[in-house]
Design a protein around this nucleic acid. Structure first.
Length: 837
RNA sequence: GCCCAGGUGGUGGAACUGGUAUACACGCAGGACUUAAAAUCCUGUGGCUGCAAAGCCAUGCGGGUUCGAUUCCCGCCCUGGGCACCA
């Protein structure tokens, strides 16, 4: 009898699977298909993190189970390899990002392979491969042709230390998400993608998919749809009309002033040539500077200045509204101008500060409070508040008045229904080297001749990919241009329309560009003619189950849904695939360091998966990560827990290998020991995998092996394993089969020891008999007034009468019931009987 | 402030649809084996009182509904995640 040695058996089975192509997914099969997906990693120099295997193992378990259940399973892997770290490393060392990336991918691949994950490696995709990013560029061109990609001068978030423009999503609490450095606002021409056009569908179609509720909630929140009215306004003494967005127009009669965002282009026109001009423009500059530094505290530093202008006869009610520039007005939401009233908390505070007249029209029932509202002593807005104005809505509640008021404003021509979103269009340019070149050229001549409106011309599809040239200097420039701008050979090109001199776009795409659509490429990774073949897309898409980090909910997950919908609309993805890319989306929790803090190099609490595999084995690592706690929660690493799991596998190996040996020597007899436990375990493990309760699945496997109260009813105990003894081999086989997705190597090994020639993964997933999965005998709890007084062993299907009679025989019960009247008896079949006295 | 999770032993955590709170694992204590240690195996292990039998108290806090509440309702407190001047 040899001891469990994962270092020996794990590489052996990894090679076996590799050699036999065990997990290759054929594009045609009589079996039903199942596509499960994990977020492909960024191949960082640090190598694999213990967080990676948490998600990968979870879906590996699912993939292996589905194969055993008779599905044709696609479980692919690839690398999202564009990104800043490689480029920053290149800046420091001069080593090309392509070289670093290749090295890192090799490391990642090696590490992933030691974990025994059942990926189809032949379908690997790498986003930095020109054969891949050809199609990333192609998608951009389609967006451009359909008017979804456009260039705009934008105030962008500029990270002073990375020297790069950041999307709103990359700015966290006013700091750069990557480096934590200061972010300021800069004006720059940027390529934008019109994701806002899909905002409604991105919300509505969430109803058709099976995502965790919190994921849906977060996406809806992020998109931030708001319904209201755009009200018409005219500036007094100037022939300028404008609209303001109002999402709570019930109180329109209360509006007494207007605020405009400091960055709004209209500000200049308002004050031009007036005595207010100098002061207002100085104020605007001051606020802009403050905003840029993100040192703005709204509460304390709400600031404003009067422009000297008025809205004329607001909605025809005879009131002129003074127009103020206010620090709290946003330039890029609604129209950047707001009509304000006492019934908005911020407006109220602002008006109080600058002594602007207010006019309440909404009052509480409570007379005391109503008086205070009237005297402008408090801010007030409640759903059950009663409207005072205008006359036709007098006496209506604030909440029920909403729709009638909107209809009224609409019918009077004061304004039109409008919808606004918090979601902004997606800034798609980066002034960086290590990304997909944006396939556009600029031709001065074509702009003059009118062949192109703005001079921008898409690179013809036949010339794709626009390959990234090699550069010597990776440092981005302070003027905000990509390092590519310095490669004149590359920048200077011919115009595809007129053939004259033209210049290439030197910005590159953000690193989400490649991950937007990688799951489509897996279906047909080597296609040269299309991003993927229609037939293959139809067969595999949509993804059946996608697991990934919660941190990607508003970034990658939303972006890729958008891009997919676009591809679906233009027919690049066949209609048969449906309008949503992922049927089901789940999310795993982070693995924290042993102290409960985030793992990081600086804290010195990083656990290296290689080390764990070397010391305890991949099966132990896998099983431990599944056992450590609820899959969707953050959990600190605990090396002691790893030891516990390893002990379990040691015992399994010891017992099963011994049984296998003795079977060969005919010292053991196979006998059906009628274990009910195995039925229960199969049921529990099967269900838990589906609901991602991996921790309780592992617990059930441990109970199966150790037995209830340490008495396994299907196998001999170790001390009984001598001479002539019995084992329920069928139960043993089933145990190994349901353990195998969790700990594949040890199960293959033991399976082979038991004398089977084929891989255990060719076996069918075990079934169970539901009637046997139930307990035969139960402990019936006897309660008196809800307090437990005794427990008796009875058959599980005991009737109420019998249960009551048996219970009354208990001494403990009679003691309590003596000289008491039983008022009521509650019987819960299979659980308890409760006497109410 | 708003949205979403969550709060259970010394630790990670378990508990069906309102029905035995603390499964499984770690740790700890004791024992077996050993010259010894490690490993392994066995036993015990929520708290308090008690020699014991037994009893009482325990799922963040305070109420409520119920024969019975970790689970449902109301009001708080705390932790984590997301959003945050969105008119």
């Amino acid at each position: 009898m040899s001891n469990y040695d994962p270092q020996k058996i794990e590489p052996k089975w990894q090679q076996y699977w590799d050699k036999n192509n065990s997990f290759a997914a054929p594009d045609k099969s009589a079996k039903p298909k199942f596509y499960c997906l994990i977020e492909f990693p960024y191949p960082s120099a640090e190598g694999l993190h213990v967080g990676h295997p948490r998600s990968y193992t979870a879906l590996d378990i699912l993939a292996r189970k589905r194969r055993m259940q008779g599905y044709n399973v696609l479980y692919p892997i690839g690398f999202d390899a564009f990104g800043l770290p490689s480029e920053n490393y290149a800046i420091k060392t001069g080593i090309q990002p392509a070289i670093t990336t290749e090295k890192n991918i090799a490391t990642f691949s090696r590490q992933l392979k030691t974990l025994g994950l059942s990926f189809d490696w032949q379908r690997q995709v790498v986003t930095t491969d020109p054969k891949y990013y050809k199609w990333t560029q192609w998608i951009f061109l389609q967006m451009y042709k359909h008017g979804l990609a456009y260039k705009a001068k934008m105030a962008i978030n500029w990270c002073l230390s990375c020297k790069i423009g950041l999307a709103n999503e990359e700015v966290v609490a006013g700091k750069c998400e990557r480096c934590g450095g200061e972010v300021e606002q800069r004006e720059k021409e940027q390529w934008m993608l019109k994701i806002t056009k899909y905002a409604d569908r991105l919300i509505e179609d969430l109803d058709t998919v099976d995502y965790l509720e919190r994921i849906k909630a977060q996406q809806i929140n992020w998109i931030g749809r708001s319904e209201g009215v755009n009200l018409k306004n005219k500036i007094k003494d100037l022939n300028i009309e404008f609209e303001v967005y109002d999402s709570i127009p019930q109180t329109f009669m209360a509006q007494t002033f207007t605020v405009i965002a400091p960055e709004h282009p209209l500000v200049e026109k308002l004050v031009k040539g007036t005595k207010y001009e100098k002061e207002v423009l100085e104020f605007v500059e001051k606020i802009k500077k403050k905003k840029a530094q993100n040192k703005f505290d709204i509460e304390k530093e709400m600031e404003g200045i009067f422009t000297g202008r008025y809205v004329e006869n607001y909605l025809g009610i005879g009131r002129d509204l003074p127009i103020w520039v206010a620090s709290y007005a946003l330039a890029d939401y609604g129209t950047g101008i707001v009509n304000c009233s006492v019934h908005d908390e911020r407006d109220y505070a602002f008006a109080k500060k600058y002594d602007i007249p207010l006019h309440p029209v909404l009052f509480p029932q409570d007379q005391e409070l109503a008086k205070k509202v009237k005297n402008l002593e408090v801010f007030y807005r409640q759903p059950d508040g009663i409207l005072e104005e205008p006359g036709q809505f007098k006496g209506m509640r604030w909440d029920t008045a909403r729709e009638p008021v909107i209809n009224y404003l609409d019918s009077k021509g004061f304004g039109k229904r409008a919808v606004n979103y918090k979601l902004r269009d997606w800034v798609f340019s980066r002034q960086r080297y290590w990304g997909e070149p944006i396939p556009m050229v600029y031709c001065e001549n074509c702009k003059k001749t009118g062949a192109s409106v703005d001079g921008w011309i898409p690179v013809p599809e036949k010339d794709l990919p626009v390959e990234l040239p090699q550069v010597k200097n990776y440092e981005p420039t302070d003027n905000g241009e990509s390092p590519l701008a310095a490669i004149t050979d590359w920048v200077n090109t011919k115009c595809p329309i007129c053939g004259g001199p033209a210049k290439r776009e030197t910005d590159t795409m953000p690193n989400w560009a490649g991950s937007n659509w990688y799951f489509l490429r897996y279906t047909d990774p080597h296609n040269n003619k299309a991003l993927a073949d229609d037939k293959k897309l139809e067969y595999w898409t949509p993804v059946d189950w996608y697991n990934g980090g919660m941190e990607h909910t508003t970034l990658h997950l939303l972006y890729s849904r958008f891009v997919y919908k676009f591809l679906y609309d233009i027919g690049a993805v066949p209609k048969k695939c449906g309008p949503e890319p992922y049927k089901k989306r789940t999310s795993h929790g982070m693995i924290l360091g042993e102290g409960g803090e985030k793992m990081s190099k600086s804290r010195g609490n990083v656990i290296n998966p290689d080390q764990v595999v070397k010391e305890y084995g991949a099966d132990t690592l896998r099983l431990y990560e599944m056992f450590m706690g609820p899959f969707d929660q953050a959990i600190p690493w605990d090396t002691k827990g790893v030891v516990g799991v390893r002990r379990f596998l040691d015992r399994v190996y010891k017992v099963v290998s011994r049984i296998a040996e003795d079977l060969k020597k005919s010292e053991i007899r196979n006998q059906n020991l009628e274990s009910r436990l195995i039925h229960r375990t199969i049921k529990k493990v099967s269900a838990d995998i589906e609901t991602q309760d991996y921790n309780t699945a592992v617990s059930a496997l441990m109970i199966q092996f150790n037995g209830v109260d340490g008495n396994p009813d299907w196998r001999p105990k170790i001390e009984e394993m001598k001479g002539d003894y019995f084992c329920d081999i069928n139960a043993l086989k089933n145990f190994l089969k349901i353990l195998s997705p969790f700990a594949p190597h040890i199960c293959e090994e033991l399976w082979q020891m038991l004398g089977y020639k084929e891989s255990i993964f060719k076996e069918a997933w075990p079934t169970y008999d539901d009637s046997l999965a139930k307990e035969e005998e139960i402990e019936l709890v006897i309660q008196i007034n809800g307090k437990i007084r005794d427990k008796i062993k009875v058959p599980a299907d005991i009737t109420e009468q019998l249960a009551e009679r048996t219970a009354l025989e208990s001494e403990k019960v009679t003691k309590y019931l003596a000289d008491k009247t039983v008022k009521n008896v509650i019987f819960v079949p299979g659980r308890l009987i409760n006497f109410v006295i």
